[in-house]
Amino acid sequence: MDIMKAYIILSIALFLIGFLGVIVRKNLITILVSTELMLNGINLALVAADKVLGRVDGQIFAFFVLTVAAAEVAVGLGLVISIFRLKGYEASHEISQLRD
């Protein structure tokens, strides 16, 4: 088997592990960390495709994914903090409405 296919499969595994983390974790902060794992899996697939094709476009997309990841962390953690401040410290299944 081509080794680049193994890298693509590794990226799929990383994405699905992150997805599993989003589904099963109770803590809001660890849910955010799991979304970061999913973004990393996408980055790995883009870089592997670049290696196959001999181009750099995929790495530029990976840069934009990094930008979105940084923005997502800032806004997401701000949301988590404000949820904690508004409603006390709750698990993810107890947060069922956005208002007070």
């Binding site: 109770k26 803590n27 006390g88 410290y89």
Partner: peptide, 20 residues
């Protein structure tokens, strides 16, 4: 992430650590 975790009181989040 570490900065945000340090602002959260530990005894209050013990209740919802772990997984479903």
């Amino acid at each position: 992430y570490v900065l945000v975790i340090t602002t959260i009181p530990w005894e209050k989040i013990k209740r919802f650590e772990g997984i479903y």
